[in-house]
Amino acid sequence: MNYFILTLFDIILVLTMLWLAWYLLNTEDIFKAVVLFISFGLLMALAWVRMRAPDVALAEAALGAGLTGPLFLSALRRMNRTRKGERRLDSDENRGKDPKTGPKQE
């Protein structure tokens, strides 16, 4: 009985993971892809748990779901900011000029 239910759990988990990965890799919106990637890391932790690898699941929960998502979000913000030609806050005083509008001023 338990074996059957766990196999059903596996099938639903795998289908959800594949669906998620498909949309994660094919949406136009990059922010949506990052959020889908965070959810994907969570489902990956569930998959490690199902394959009786709790140590790997612990590492995935700490690193994959907890650390990679904020990393991607911060990088997305930085890239969006520089794309619009705006200055970064931390390098305003240091650099003095914008990398995009810099050559025009010279």
Binding site: L24, L25, A33, V34, T68, F72, A75, M79
Partner: peptide
């Protein structure tokens, strides 16, 4: 071609 999407793709591959 977007670099963030390439990094996401490499992550999915490693997974």
């Amino acid at each position: 071609s977007h670099p963030l999407r390439k990094i996401l793709a490499v992550n999915v591959m490693s997974t």
